[in-house]
Design a protein around this nucleic acid. Structure first.
Length: 217
DNA sequence: CGCCAGGGCCATA
DNA sequence: TATGGCCATGGC
């Protein structure tokens, strides 16, 4: 049993509504999701700025892999990511770049389609499902793993195991999952990386409570 | 100078 | 199924 609701409420009270994903369009969101793989967001912003004039499916598709790669250099792994973007575009094109049409697909089936695209793994698929296709899903990123493990929960190591354990205890609410992931990322930005919990951590009382209850039991 | 950031693929055992 | 190497930039 994870006190997910409490964790969410603490983060929400501390940081307020995040209104994610930071992008001006769903398409930009999805490109950003690929660019941010294992990369600092500020680097992604530089790459997106370079893509400014090409930030629509057809325009991006016209660029050669090499040209695209050069534009996204600041995001790192630029050769790989250029290929991944092209792979994604190829899939997107089969739906005529129609987001609303894709939204009609069942969540798990759409997830599997995204996972079949080379370069899109579980986390990238899930942020796209959540922030572009309005599917309620919990995104398991490095920050989520760190937070839950630091609070002392015994979480599954596998991506889907972790995700399903969380989803089992939360209502299927799009807005909730949308804010939750954003809040976890926001929290990670300000919290101390090396210490488990700092003095001003909004999750401090939850941690203390868990220590107390485990001492009793 | 080294470490890390909102991963994922592939080869290997 | 589970590690390990690889991809690469910019900030600190």
């Amino acid at each position: 049993m994870i006190e997910l609701r409490k964790i969410y409420d603490r983060l929400y009270k501390q940081y307020g509504p995040q209104g994610w994903w930071p992008a001006e369009s769903k398409f930009e969101m999805m490109i950003g999701a690929i660019l941010v793989q294992n990369t600092n967001w500020t680097n992604v912003e530089k790459a997106l700025a370079n893509l400014k004039l090409h930030l629509e499916p057809k325009a991006l598709g016209k660029l050669s892999n090499d040209t695209l790669a050069k534009l996204i250099i600041p995001s790192g792994y630029y050769n790989i990511k250029a290929r991944r973007i092209k792979s994604f575009l190829e899939w997107f094109q089969t739906y005529n770049y129609d987001i609303d049409k894709i939204k009609k697909i069942d969540r798990n089936r759409l997830r599997q389609e995204l996972l079949n695209i080379n370069g899109i793994g579980p986390e990238t698929a899930d942020v796209m499902l959540l922030y572009a296709f309005d599917k309620a899903i919990f995104v398991v990123d490095a920050y989520a793993r760190r937070i839950f493990n630091r609070l002392g929960y015994d979480m599954p190591k596998s991506y889907d195991g972790f995700r399903q354990k969380v989803e089992l205890e939360l209502p299927c609410d799009l807005k909730l999952y949308n804010e939750f992931h954003a809040l976890i990322v926001e929290h990670a930005k300000v919290q101390c990386r090396k210490k488990p919990l700092c003095g001003t951590c909004p999750l401090l009382d939850i941690c203390a409570q868990r220590i107390e209850s485990s001492a009793k039991g």
